[in-house]
Design a protein around this nucleic acid. Structure first.
Lengths: 112, 112
DNA sequence: TTACATACCTTTCAGTTCTATGTATAGATT
DNA sequence: AATCTATACATAGAACTGAAAGGTATGTAA
């Protein structure tokens, strides 16, 4: 069946990519591996997820890209703009709000 | 504009409703207020969100309902079935996985 | 009779992730 | 030479699902 919309993932790819790129510029394929790494293998994003998000963020002015050829291969490096930093902060606050709300609900002891 | 797909909310309504109903049976309108309460006002779900989720869960066998008239008003009370408990546990684990992954990523210190 | 809170429900919209698929090159293996 | 694997970018289509808006109806209070 291939469950196409797993729960709790909306907004997560965007947040993770912005966060990683806020540390240093990276290219798409590198981000695929990096997401797995920094999330402790908990979250894995395919290229089909990563690239559309990168393109969308660049279109929206949150990222800027530059091409670079390394070992005969062309890579597209992405970096966060000022606008992207603002977007990242906003997303982080939003994540914290939802996370806190869900935690509060789950921490309520239930008899069962 | 009314941002129709806010980030980080996918799966959250279902998780919260199952969790609340695991404590005691409740009716739709009551759940609307209860969600706000237990999340410390962080999360608010409208009736247009609640009812479809309840119907979907009942259809899937996770909830069972019974009608009850109180003060001349008919209420539909929902309770979690065994299947619903299984579903809740699964969702909780899933939430914990994503939450952990994102936390790990965000906790990584970044130079900026 | 007006207004409001309660109580239920459906329709429509729109945004997002995911899988699957496709192209192309470099390097290693056979 | 041929094949395989990893790298690197990209798009298309499907499925899911939360939100807003609208609709019906009743009890209570002003």
């Amino acid at each position: 069946m291939a469950q196409s919309n797993p729960p709790f993932m909306s907004g997560v790819p965007e947040l993770l990519l912005l966060r990683l790129l806020a540390q240093r510029e990276m290219y798409g394929y590198e981000l695929v591996r990096s997401v797995r790494l920094v999330t402790g293998e908990a979250i894995s994003l395919g290229e089909g997820v990563i690239y559309p998000v990168l393109h969308g963020l660049e279109k929206g002015g949150a990222l800027k890209s530059r091409r670079k050829t390394v070992d005969g291969r062309t890579r597209v490096y992405y970096a966060v703009t000022r606008k992207g930093h603002t977007r990242l902060e906003k997303l982080q606050k939003e994540w914290e709000r939802i996370r806190g709300g869900v935690s509060a609900a789950l921490d309520t002891p239930h008899h069962g």
